[in-house]
Write a protein that binds this DNA or RNA. Structure first.
Lengths: 171, 171
DNA sequence: CAATGCATGTAATAGGTTACATGATTTC
DNA sequence: GAAATCATGTAACCTATTACATGCATTG
């Protein structure tokens, strides 16, 4: 049983959700999983071939006119692999947040600079929350738990930094 | 002006906070910035030499007994570089969350499996929140905004997944 | 005297992005 | 007929982790 990379699992999951071209995978990932696990072309096309080599997906040429086009579909072995991964207990959770890093080194700055940093951060989270809401309205996916999580996480962050802002400006 | 990698900035920030050996940097990063930006030995030692080569830090041999030991200190140019970075507006924010990815592909699972997944996630966040609190108690850093953020973020997540759990089990 | 901690380092490998090249089709 | 979208791909590069090697000092 080969161990798949996280990106391979994203790709496998997307193909398991329906027949996809490499281009499809990129497009869908960019508008959904991107926020918690992205994928670039440099990964997608080689990985699709690798997954096919391992028998987890299979493909057929389905050109549109004269545009060559390869559609991938999940195999029974692929379905088993996806389910196995989804039921696995291992949990990778990682935040890479440069703003938080800056706050951590706040002692190296003047108090007013820290305040400005916090203010910018609050604004950024507010804007991102709005942006996520717009995605939901456009795609009309009110029942998407993950998108809901994203929106509420951004809102929580905006609130947290607004509170810190108040504390710092009064403190 | 060379552009520093995020890890280089973490290292630079830690050296700016006080004289450090490579070992110090690793130890401190592991107990603090690790949760939002880690650093491994494979990065630290070469990066310290690179930063010294650029004149942002300088070092001196300060052996303890017969154990060779090189202590790095920030230079004026290094101080300028750190401040410049801290005041920069660019914000890298990234979450890599496999649990969320699993939830996203929930349609590929039976509802009871999704419920179990959500339950495990809730538990994990609860435990992590407790763990973060313990770090705060041990280090006695009640005024550390970043640690506070970590604790509250874990608690918010625990609550969010508890709510989802309820929603799913009631249908 | 064993285990743990302090201390430095590197080679191999993994994982991923960026930037580019190519060309058809559809939409405005 | 220009621009956007669909579609596939790769070479070069960057960043980072893992696993290992080495050895002294301190603590129980």
């Amino acid at each position: 049983m080969s161990t798949l990379t996280p990106t391979a699992r994203v790709i496998l999951g997307l193909v398991a959700s329906g027949p996809r071209t490499g281009y499809d995978v990129k497009r869908i990932a960019d508008s959904s999983t991107r926020f918690f696990w992205g994928a670039s072309y440099g990964q997608i096309y080689p990985e699709l071939r690798r997954l096919e080599g391992e028998g987890l997906i299979e493909s057929s040429e389905e050109p549109r006119g004269r545009v060559r086009r390869r559609v991938y579909r999940i195999t029974p072995a692929g379905t088993r692999a996806v389910r196995e991964w989804l039921l696995d207990t291992e949990t990778a959770f990682e935040i890479r947040d440069e703003g938080l890093l800056r706050l951590f080194f706040g002692d190296l700055l003047e108090p007013e600079d820290v305040l400005e940093l916090v203010r910018r951060r609050r604004t950024w989270f507010e804007l991102t929350a709005v942006y996520f809401r717009e995605i939901g309205d456009e795609l009309d996916v009110q029942d998407d738990e993950v998108l809901r999580y994203g929106i509420e996480l951004m809102e929580w962050n905006a609130t947290w930094f607004a509170r810190l802002e108040k504390r710092l400006s009064q403190g």
